[in-house]
Amino acid sequence: MARITHLFRYPIKGLSAQPVSRVSLRQGGGFPGDRMFALARPDGLYSETRFVPLPKRQYFMLMKDERLAGLTTHLDVDTLDLTVRVRGNIVLEANLGTPAGILQLRRFYARVLDLPSDALPVFAQQPGYNFSDSAKASRQLMNSLSFINLASVRDLEQRIGRPVDPLRFRANVYLDGLEPWEERRWFGGEFSAGSVQFRGLEETTRCAATEVDPLTARRDIPLPRLLVEHYGDDVLGFFAEILADGELHIGDEVTVAAQPSVGDALRVGGAPRVGTAPRVGDALAEASDIPFPVVR
């Protein structure tokens, strides 16, 4: 039986995963408190007052800045109290609801990211916006949840002969009890988890952020290229939108509705389709420059 094993939010883009045991979801909304803040590059395009959705490289994030993984952060999403630890030792306490706390955060990460002495990262927050990688593609994707099938991660581990921390994929919802890769057959349809009804939107094409070990902060496994070598494309996981309000709890059962036949055997036994078949998830490519919001 398929169940939810873990739920995570990532309140600040690129910083630590924070486990939760339950979460209330609203139709058309995302995972509450997920990627609510980001650190934008000081010489970049982010503007607080004239904000437009930007490619992920305009922000500090793991695809480029693996050092971010070396600090353990915890943000209380209600009080906005942030604690940063190194091996359990507190190295920063700041309240992100105050200008002074935000300045402390910016100074701290200027040091960690080795910015020039006169540069500070920009604290990015925009009402109604989250800084997930997919947010630039559409409001619908921005307000989706990301899912990972742990059986698929285990299959990947077996094929590449190395352990793969599922947190490399920084998903909101982790599922187990499924067959490896079976999500690739049904992700485009509807399914329920706990009392929430979902509809799959897109598969997740993986980027170099997954190369970073979330514990050692070292770029150590070339996961996107290993995915391509072993399976023919760089997909692991999918996004799904919330169709009706409800709650998710760890342990909730996952039930897949009628399975669409399209996409069957995309992966299992499927021929590599690099460079030929249309790439699911290309909407996430920064090059696509899809205006926001593209859907609705």
């Binding site: 980027c207 170099a208 995915l227 760089d234 090059a287």
Partner: peptide
């Protein structure tokens, strides 16, 4: 660019 890992 997108994946920055030689796959996309």
């Amino acid at each position: 660019s997108s994946c920055e890992s030689g796959t996309c």
